[in-house]
């Protein structure tokens, strides 16, 4: 009688126990939905860090994840300590102290994403600038391909990397319109960027300091209208006696 009542106490654990177990072993990745300026995104993670960010509206995320990363994706809550970091990383467009798991990437890809992660919010850099920062100025196309395959957009802000002519360019997370939305969200007017590009302006100099910058550099933005000098190339700026800004290293 007591024995039967005791046998009746056997019960199934909540589903989170199974997913948490598999997640803890690293056999699967977990995923949950987060808000972003371009709509809901699915953030995938494992104990090493965040693995990928995709638009929640993308069809077949689970299948694509398994093909790309070799691990199944299960719905799970992110580790408690990471929840606020994920929020902040998405809002700031910078990983900050959020760990990333980029182990499936090549060294070059990781290096380029590392440089991208350091682009300040509200500023943009051309592909060629990243290639130079990686001490590989010929690798402009390769940089473009790293951006196109960035597994963690928003968090590593590839939306801040634009074409070398200054136009906004392509974006892997839902297309160029989303890139414009994100730039607008952080105070960069994409229409203004493209107006400069059409006018052939690549750099802005200050005739009071004799320094030239990339147009979105925080120092370029401070130059008052009467002292802004437009340059079509760095050669023009140097020929006019200007030196490059040490912050945006144009």
């Amino acid at each position: 009688m007591i024995e039967e009542s005791l046998a009746d106490l056997a019960t199934e654990p909540p589903a989170s126990v199974t997913s948490g177990t598999l997640l803890g072993t690293g056999l699967v990745d977990g995923a949950s939905v987060w808000e972003s300026p371009v709509g809901d995104v699915v953030v995938a993670f494992n104990p090493s860090g965040v693995v990928s960010v995709d638009l929640a509206s993308t069809p077949g995320i689970e299948a694509a994840h398994e093909v790309r990363f070799g691990r199944r994706l299960v719905e799970a809550r992110a580790p408690k300590a990471w929840a606020s970091r994920i929020d902040r990383a998405i809002e700031q467009g910078q990983p900050g102290d959020l760990p990333l798991d980029l182990r499936t990437l090549t060294g070059f890809q990781r290096e380029i994403l590392g440089i991208t992660a350091a682009i300040p919010r509200g500023e943009v850099r051309p592909y060629g600038w990243l290639a130079r920062a990686a001490a590989n100025p010929g690798a402009v196309r390769a940089v473009g391909s790293v951006m196109a395959k960035n597994p963690v957009p928003l968090v590593v802000p590839c939306h801040r990397v634009v074409r070398s002519d200054g136009t906004v360019g392509a974006y892997s997370l839902g297309g160029a319109d989303n890139k414009r939305t994100l730039l607008d969200h952080e105070g960069v007017d994409p229409a203004e960027l493209e107006a400069l590009a059409r006018a052939g302006t690549r750099f802005i100099g200050s005739d009071t300091t004799g320094i030239y910058c990339l147009p979105t550099c925080r120092h370029a933005r401070r130059i008052s209208a009467g002292h802004r000098i437009a340059f079509a190339s760095d050669a023009d700026a140097v020929a006019a006696g200007y030196r490059p800004c040490q912050v945006c290293t144009p």
Partner: peptide, 22 residues
């Protein structure tokens, strides 16, 4: 999972989920 959780649920009522996972 069911036997381990059921047992831990009785031995450590408030931490059974975490302990099962661990």
């Amino acid at each position: 999972r069911s036997p381990v959780y059921s047992g831990l649920r009785r031995l450590h009522p408030s931490d059974a989920e975490d302990l099962t996972q661990e």
